[in-house]
Simulated assay, not measured.
Amino acid sequence: MMTTTERRRAAAGRVREAEDLVARLREGFAGMGIVLPSLRIDPLSCAGDEPAALVELGRCNLDTALRLSRALEAKGDGRA
C-alpha cells in the first residue's frame, strides 16, 4: 500500500504529465492554425487524494471545429 507521501508524489506527477500534454496539444494545434481557447487541465479532476488530471479540450466555434476535422481527415489520408 502506498503512503500518503507516495500518493501525493504520484498525483503531482500525473498533473505535470497533463500540463506537458496540454502544452504539446496547444503547440500542435497552433502548427495547424487551430486555437482551442478552452484547452486546459480540468481543475476538478485534480481535486482529491488521487487526481485523474483530465484534459479539457473545451468548446470551439464551427470554423475551428471544421479546421480540426479537416486536419484529422488529412492526417488519416496521409496528407499531413
Score class of each variant (00 low, 15 high):
E50A: 14
R9P: 04
K75P: 01
A65G: 12
L62I: 13
R70Q: 13
A52E: 14
V22K: 00
L68N: 03
M2N: 08
D42M: 00
M1N: 09
L25T: 05
V35I: 12
S69C: 09
G58R: 01
A12M: 12
T4D: 04
L39M: 08
A52I: 13
T4N: 03
S38E: 15
A65K: 05
R70T: 11
F29T: 09
F29C: 06
S45D: 05
E17T: 15
A12Q: 15
R14G: 01
R16P: 02
G48L: 06
D63H: 08
L66M: 12
G58S: 04
C46A: 12
L39P: 07
A47S: 10
S69D: 08
R59N: 03
R70Y: 07
G58A: 01
M32E: 14
K75C: 05
P43I: 04
A47W: 00
P37L: 08
A71V: 13
M2F: 11
L36W: 04
K75L: 11
D63A: 11
G48N: 07
R40W: 01
M1C: 09
T3N: 03
L39K: 09
P43E: 09
C46S: 12
V35E: 12
A18G: 10
L25A: 05
T5A: 10
T4L: 02
E50R: 14
V15Y: 00
P37C: 09
E19H: 07
T4S: 02
G13E: 07
R7Q: 14
E50S: 13
S69I: 05
L68M: 08
A10G: 01
E17K: 15
I34Q: 00
A18I: 09
L72C: 13
A71Y: 11
R67N: 12
I41L: 02
T3C: 01
R9Q: 15
E19N: 07
L54N: 11
D49K: 13
E19L: 06
L36Y: 03
P51L: 06
A10V: 08
I34R: 00
S69A: 14
T64R: 00
D49I: 12
V55A: 03
F29H: 05
A71R: 14
L25H: 08
G58W: 00
M32P: 04
I34N: 00
R70N: 11
R8W: 04
V22H: 01
A12K: 14
G13C: 03
A52M: 11
P37E: 09
P43F: 03
L68C: 03
E73C: 05
M32H: 15
A65C: 07
R67W: 08
C60Q: 10
L57I: 13
P43H: 02
A71S: 14
S45M: 06
F29Y: 11
M32D: 09
C60W: 03
E27R: 15
S38F: 07
S38G: 08
R24G: 04
L36P: 04
K75Q: 13
R59A: 09
V22R: 00
R40L: 02
E17M: 14
E19F: 01
I41A: 01
R8E: 11
G58N: 02
R26C: 08
T64K: 00
A12W: 06
T4V: 05
D63G: 10
R67G: 06
S38M: 10
T5R: 06
M2V: 08
M32A: 14
R16L: 06
R24F: 07
C60H: 11
G33A: 07
L66R: 15
R59G: 05
A18Y: 01
L21C: 12
